[in-house]
Design a protein around this nucleic acid. Structure first.
Ligand SMILES: [Mn+2]
Ligand SMILES: [Mn+2]
Ligand SMILES: [Mn+2]
Ligand SMILES: [Mn+2]
Lengths: 223, 223
DNA sequence: ATATATTTTTAGGCATGTCTAAATTTTTAG
DNA sequence: CTAAAAATTTAGACATGCCTAAAAATATAT
């Protein structure tokens, strides 16, 4: 058993940011990218990278960005697990809307108690996805995989089910609320406009034109 | 409506400590008493009292201790409300034992979201007491009152119901667990030993001798 | 290939919250 | 009523996490 040095709230936020930025491709994550995500200055990021490197949570090569170590990734995944479990709790049990949960989950994800996390998971029935369709890692850090694609990559004249959102900003979610386009909604892709990349889709007996930007943020899977 | 400056986690802990220390008697709370409670040095307490006084959360007269202002008391009560609601949640929904909840509630009590608190309260059915029998203030800060007394003040040959614990340390709670002396248990006070202040009580068809220290930490109310 | 632009790091500073040691005030005892 | 003890505050320091400005390294463009 390791004696795992205490990881601060701030450090957890950096680990999570690096994880999210680095998950596509095995390349390293740049200081500026982290700064943008965290809304901090690049110099603050450099400072923190030194601390995380000291704790063996990242590998940092000067001027070359960082990569999470095994330990760093494992910890990032634990924070993400808690974030998503709490989001499920807020929506399923406390009647929050999916556009209201993120801010509160950002706080709750830092609560430290193994037992709390496991019991919450059980209480919620071991959910596989959070209210935005994102997979919830199990206690060993394993994610369920799915064959979801973006609406922007969909084939015309094909039926899909809406399974997630890429951008889960309140603005985007409220747009979807307006048309009752919830997760699980079945939709048919009617056409794609080459000119502006917009799509025409049908769901719940309504026909809707969605812009390229909308299409690039809605995950679907073939029926 | 006030623009209520942000109150830090540390400040909340001090407000709560002052509230608990000050609730009996309207006298002011001493620096040393706070230091003991918070497990900090007296000099750290003085520093913090200056900050809280600056924010009008306490009144501080040099060398004379502090008292909570209306604002300070209101905020302390909000933190206590959250602490106790979360303790109920952990016990009722997540199968924690009453001796395991305090540490986690110490973290959860600082989560900032009015909606979260109100919805949690509703989800739990607006409980009036936490797992240790302590009253949960409502959203306006009002406590239910009860006529509880300590076992050490009980009359001999009288029947009572166990309604709370004064000390909710894990050690004391585990002692009670051992004898299945839970809240709601009916008990009869059989005798009191003048020599050492111990009591003989009967409950659940067992007879138990409890020391002065135990008796001074168990709240009961007459049947 | 070199000058320019961009990225990243370093240097120095600030706020928070803690500490130890010393000074000051209040309390207690003789 | 004073002298010692206890409580409290002040002074100076340190770690964390952030900032701005300047320096250094890397990337880009002609
Ligand atoms: Mn979220
Ligand atoms: Mn989410
Ligand atoms: Mn508690
Ligand atoms: Mn309690």
């Amino acid at each position: 058993m390791y004696i795992c040095a205490v990881i601060t709230l701030s450090e957890e936020n950096y680990l999570k940011a690096i994880y999210h930025l680095g998950k596509r491709g095995s390349q390293s994550v740049s200081t500026n990218a982290i700064a943008r995500k965290i809304k901090a200055k690049a110099s603050s990021v450099t400072d923190m990278m030194k601390k995380l490197a000291e704790k063996d949570l990242v590998n940092h090569k000067k001027y070359q960005g960082v990569k999470l170590t095994e330990d760093g990734q494992a910890h990032a995944i634990k924070v993400i697990r808690k974030h998503r479990l709490w989001e499920v709790f807020l929506v399923e049990k406390l009647k929050f809307s999916w556009d209201e949960v993120h801010e509160v989950a950002e706080q709750l994800e830092h609560i430290k108690s193994e037992k709390l996390t496991q019991q919450l998971d059980a209480f919620l029935g071991f959910p596989e996805r959070d209210p935005h369709g994102d997979p919830i890692p199990d206690k060993d850090g394993n994610f369920a995989v799915t064959n979801k694609i973006l609406l922007s990559e969909a084939e015309v004249d094909t039926k899909y089910t809406c399974v997630g959102v890429k951008d889960s900003s309140a603005d985007f979610l409220k747009y979807l609320n307006k048309y009752n386009l919830t997760l699980g909604t079945e939709l048919e892709v009617l056409s794609r406009e080459d000119f502006d990349g917009s799509f025409s889709i049908r769901f719940n007996n309504i026909r809707l034109n969605v812009s390229k930007d909308i299409a690039a943020n809605l995950f679907i899977k073939p029926n």
